[in-house]
């Protein structure tokens, strides 16, 4: 009996065909789940498809022209990009801060990890409704605390100067744990030898963080930034429940706009054009990471 190990790629399938056959199911699922809806969304975006009318005529770039002529859509793009940049920046900063802090703890890491993760486990709808109650100008606990302390009370969700930042704060609060978890896992893989070596070389805490921690977790930071960017770009539930895009369109995001002007009116052709624009914008914002991944 031969002791030569059996190779999976040997035999009828051949070296070249085997990996492709193994990949085929995944590629088929990806094609059906991704390309099919994407292609149809793309095609619908050039029509005036109304779901209830069940009729669709080709109108060329009509939907796109209408979209970009619409002040509210332009405002929604601005709001979305501004919100995404601010939210991702704050989430990454606080997430990293908390991850480094918890990673440095000698005791209680497990319980801290569990407690810190709780906000992320809540559905966005629950978070929105909870904050709506807490920030109510009538019965909200925040209002009562601020009033007791003699601090100014705002109508948080209905004033232009506070609505956007309040939603931003809520979103950051909920999503910092996601960043924390990902970066914390990455920090666990950094060898303590490197810190010891840096310490022997006389590096202080900040230098260790910059020269040891960051290079070791930079890929996780990049991935985390990408995932948070994509997710934040799709912000919908909190805006829809808390402000509906107001006051005066100051919190309207692209998804909220599409819901109000496309989905709610069953104008799926128009909505599809907006979805395509949003996808392109996400691609642009994510292009840095994609470029890095390809390299």
């Amino acid at each position: 009996m031969s002791n030569k190990p059996y190779k999976l790629s040997e035999g009828a399938l051949g070296d070249r065909a085997f990996p492709h056959i193994m990949l085929a199911p995944t590629l088929i699922v990806l094609t059906v789940m991704t390309l099919y809806p994407l292609v149809f969304t793309f095609i619908y975006s050039f029509t005036d498809y109304n779901y209830l009318k069940q009729s669709a005529s080709f109108i060329g770039f009509g939907n796109y022209i209408t979209l970009f002529k619409n002040n509210y859509f332009r405002q929604a793009i601005f709001n979305t990009v501004k919100f995404t940049l601010l939210a991702v920046m704050f989430e990454m900063f606080f997430g990293l801060l908390v991850a480094v802090f918890v990673n440095s703890l000698k005791k209680g890491q497990k319980i801290m990890r569990t407690l810190l993760l709780l906000p992320y486990l809540l559905p966005a709808v629950t978070v929105a409704l909870s904050f709506r109650m807490m920030l109510s100008p009538n019965y909200g606990i925040t209002t009562q605390v601020l009033t007791t302390l003699g601090l100014p009370v705002y109508n948080w969700f209905h004033e232009i100067k506070t609505a956007f930042n309040t939603i931003l704060l809520i979103d950051v609060w909920q999503n910092v744990p996601f960043v924390f978890l990902l970066l914390y896992a990455s920090l666990q893989t950094v060898s303590s030898d490197q810190y010891e070596a840096a310490s022997i070389d006389g590096a202080n805490v900040l230098q260790q963080f910059w020269n040891v921690t960051v290079p070791n977790i930079k890929n996780s930071i990049a991935l985390c930034t990408l995932l948070r960017t994509i997710d934040t770009f799709r912000l919908f539930e909190k805006v829809n429940i808390l402000t509906g895009g107001g006051p005066a369109n100051s919190t309207a995001t692209i998804t909220q706009f599409l819901y109000n002007y496309g989905i709610k009116n069953l104008k799926f052709g128009f909505g599809s054009a907006g979805a395509i624009v949003m996808t392109v914008l996400v691609l642009i914002l994510s292009s840095f990471y994609i470029k890095k991944a390809i390299q």
């Binding site: 990806l30 789940m33 991704t34 390309l35 809806p37 994407l38 969304t41 559905p123 966005a124 709808v125 929105a128 995932l227 994509i230 997710d231 770009f233 799709r234 919908f236 539930e237 829809n240 429940i241 692209i254 998804t255 909220q256 599409l258 819901y259 496309g262 989905i263 909505g271 599809s272 907006g274 979805a275 949003m278 996808t279 996400v282 691609l283 994510s286 990471y289 994609i290 991944a293 390809i294």
Partner: peptide, 27 residues
């Protein structure tokens, strides 16, 4: 590149679906 694009598009496309389905769960 293809896989990265597919991932981005899948996640982004979910956004447009969210717009129609989220309110059902939200309110």
């Amino acid at each position: 590149m293809i896989l990265a694009l597919a991932m981005i598009m899948t996640l982004a496309a979910c956004g447009s679906q969210t717009a129609s389905s989220a309110p059902q769960s939200s309110s």
